[in-house]
């Protein structure tokens, strides 16, 4: 049996992911994270001197704090198993990536283990975020200078 034939046989047997069910769960879990964040933003706007725009910073930090607790107590992996992308895509998922790597590599020490691995998972997001931001901003700035578009 060659590889092509086997791939066909394997495709016929391997169960397909339940896409609709997964999407509904991702929608609910992801939406729930955003809703919680909206209430936290309300808290910062009501009790502190934040506007709708500036409240975003402390809200993000608070969500990452919540993510740290959920990760540390072993709950985030359960949320991730249910919610899929609904748990990975919100900023809490970014927090989970950082925190889970940090506590995983504690056994190799704080410098080589935690320090060396804390961005093991989240690092690629930062890299591609920074690089694409650089390119987009560069192109836009040049286009503005050339008078093609305006800020």
């Amino acid at each position: 049996m060659d590889q092509k034939k086997y791939a066909k046989l394997e495709q016929g047997i391997t169960p397909k992911p339940p896409i609709l069910k997964n999407c509904i769960k991702a929608f609910l879990v992801g939406g729930a994270f955003c809703l919680v964040a909206q209430f936290i933003a309300l808290f910062y706007m009501t009790f502190f001197d934040f506007t709708e725009r500036t409240a975003s910073n402390p809200t993000v930090a608070t969500m990452i704090f919540i993510s740290m607790l959920l990760t540390g107590f072993g709950l985030y992996k359960k949320i991730g198993q249910i919610g899929g992308a609904g748990a990975s895509v919100p900023i809490t998922g970014f927090g989970n990536a950082v925190v889970s790597a940090a506590i995983e590599h504690k056994s190799e020490g704080y410098v080589l283990g935690v320090g060396g691995n804390i961005f093991k998972l989240a690092g690629s997001v930062i890299l591609f975020g920074v690089f694409s931001a650089f390119l987009v901003a560069l192109v836009k700035t040049i286009l503005v200078k050339l008078g093609v578009v305006s800020w």
């Binding site: 992996k77 748990a87 989970n96 889970s100 998972l121």
Partner: peptide, 16 residues
């Protein structure tokens, strides 16, 4: 931790 992700990482494992 060696072959996949840190234990506490919330990735979704499929039926396979």
């Amino acid at each position: 931790r060696q072959f996949r992700y840190p234990i506490e990482y919330g990735s979704q494992k499929g039926d396979t």
